[in-house]
Nucleic acid binder design. Sequence first.
DNA 1: CATTATAGTTGTTACTAACAACATAGTGAC
DNA 2: GTCACTATGTTGTTAGTAACAACTATAATG
Lengths: 147, 147
Amino acid sequence: MPRLARAEELYEAVNQLIRVHQFRDRDYICCHDVSVAQCYALETLVKRGPLRLQALADEMYLDKSTTSRVVDSLLRKQYVLKLHDPDDQRAIQLSLTPSGEALYQTIHQDLISEEASMIKDVPPEVVDGALTLIRQLTIAARNRLGS
Amino acid sequence: MPRLARAEELYEAVNQLIRVHQFRDRDYICCHDVSVAQCYALETLVKRGPLRLQALADEMYLDKSTTSRVVDSLLRKQYVLKLHDPDDQRAIQLSLTPSGEALYQTIHQDLISEEASMIKDVPPEVVDGALTLIRQLTIAARNRLGS
DNA sequence: CATTATAGTTGTTACTAACAACATAGTGAC
DNA sequence: GTCACTATGTTGTTAGTAACAACTATAATG
């Protein structure tokens, strides 16, 4: 298969996967107290620990203004905490409250058990293979974004 | 690795891939005359041929009202055509205009050559492996949505 | 100390997307 | 044939997603 044809097939396949995942995420996340973007912010704070706003924005590939408003809504719902950095009065440290952490764990478990159901008929070694490859593709894509 | 841990890793990996692709799509599509959703509608009409509104909505996993408005904007820009079904006065047949077709081809080629650059250092057999697996995952996910 | 750079917020605009209510047009039951 | 039911699209409304530009306040640099 020529190079461009392979690229096309891959593009197509990833796109389909994205649609399905997006649709599912809307379903599973929004029945809890947060939106998809809000949940993603919670997730990032769980994974990376307390972050500054700009760092959070970078992790999420979002503008700082968009991120500021997403954080605002989490703040109002008391899922995150905002502390001024003592070394830099401009900066804020964002961290999860216990209820934010708890909410994320609930949603996460929902999503993971859903994912587990999805792959229940796919052989483990096939999943492992997919994992490695998907990660490689992500790294390749990320490297290109940076340049 | 236990079953849930594998599911968790996969969920994580797919999520990362999705973020990167979404970010890139925003970049590459929106500098043309259409938004991401509008481009997706064009793509669906290219792939499936003329469709009714509800059928288009089903393909895109969107509500018919959302789809109606996406189509509206494509109509105003004269990228799609709306024809009444002679057999059913309620229904409309949506099809691409030549300029809609042309615009999609331009964007598509941009995206594909970008995808090709991304995977230029990934061995072809690795890409082929990823392809098969990504498709399998999509099918598994889709089947679960239907049920 | 003036200039420049950085961190975050707010104003504005456009897109994404669902749900509910609606008008209209087919489909069946009787 | 008419009444109820269903299906197709559109419109009103609300909420979430997201960028860009302008702004305030703070920090760093010369």
